[in-house]
């Protein structure tokens, strides 16, 4: 029974990892950009949530209404003013610029919020649980998982059923020709980053509700998100959910065997997938 419990918890935490991964996968899909500062932006969103909840005394979930638009605007501005200047055939500039950004964000957070671990207080939601047989399922992890499904479903719909999604795909296919059709590449990329950071905002708030975080927590979130993307298969949004679940379950099993092995087991699962299926378990099929 213990083991079933561990697997269920692992699956649910996988939802959070999928949220880390979805934003990363999205901007890679649209503009082949890998944002090294992705994890730090997640932590930035969590700290924003902390400031919002502390200053106006609202629930972290309500704070989403403020944090999501702020992060979306940050994303648009970041892309439009900075990252668009680095886009091109050379992969070095965007990589190094987002790496620099990562260091700047970490140290700015350290300066403003200190190195103390923080947590977003979500009241009764933290301890609420439902029992199915002998398995206890926390309401918060369950909510996280449901939100992850909703976010990925929403992104999927947006990508394949709306005009903006069409613009994303067209720009991703061929930015020059998309520009000929009246799509401003700089604007489309800005929107993609805004969308990515909206997802980052959701991920950050849930991260803060679930675990303690500090200014140095970012890189590990980037790595979890990245592992989920690769395990699931590049360019496949639903794949990120499966990747997140596999990562969560592997970590749970590792922790059960030896507490020191939690993260190690997750990384090993990733390396194993890389070794046997380098394109991930569910690579995108061109249609």
């Amino acid at each position: 029974m213990d083991w079933i419990n561990i697997i269920v918890q692992g699956i649910l935490i996988g939802g959070l990892y999928a949220l880390f991964a979805a934003g990363l996968s999205l901007i890679f899909g649209v503009m082949r950009l890998v944002n090294i500062a992705h994890g730090d932006l997640i932590v930035l969103a969590a700290f924003l949530g902390l400031t919002v909840t502390a200053s106006i005394g609202i629930h972290p979930l309500t704070a989403l209404l403020i944090v999501v638009p702020i992060m979306a605007m940050v994303g648009y501005a970041l892309q439009y003013l900075l990252l668009n200047r680095t886009m091109g055939d050379d992969i070095l500039p965007p990589l190094l610029v987002t790496f620099g950004l990562s260091v700047i964000i970490q140290n700015a957070l350290l300066e403003v919020y200190s190195a103390d671990p923080q947590k977003l207080q979500s009241g009764p939601l933290e301890t609420a649980s439902i029992s199915i047989g002998s398995i206890n399922i926390g309401v918060l992890p369950l909510l996280m998982f449901v939100v992850a499904i909703a976010v990925i479903g929403g992104l999927q719909w947006l990508f394949y059923k709306t005009a903006i999604g069409r613009a994303f795909r067209a720009t991703s296919d061929n930015a020059d020709i998309a520009q000929l059709m009246g799509l401003n590449k700089a604007h489309v990329f800005g929107l993609a980053m805004a969308l990515s950071l909206s997802v980052v905002a959701i991920a950050g708030i849930f991260l803060g509700m679930r675990t303690a975080f500090d200014p140095a927590s970012g890189p590990a979130r980037l790595i979890f998100g990245f592992e989920a993307v690769i395990i699931g298969g590049l360019g496949n949004l639903w794949g990120t959910l499966i990747g997140g679940v596999i990562l969560g379950v592997a970590q749970g099993i590792g922790a059960k065997i030896n507490p020191g092995w939690q993260l190690l087991a997750g990384h090993c699962a990733f390396l194993l997938v890389l070794a046997i299926r380098p394109k991930g378990l569910f690579p995108r099929v061109e249609h």
Partner: peptide, 16 residues
């Protein structure tokens, strides 16, 4: 645009 259907390609043209 290879990842767009025929009709989606046409619709992109109406973007302006």
């Amino acid at each position: 645009f290879p990842s767009l259907s025929v009709e989606e390609n046409l619709k992109i043209g109406a973007q302006s």
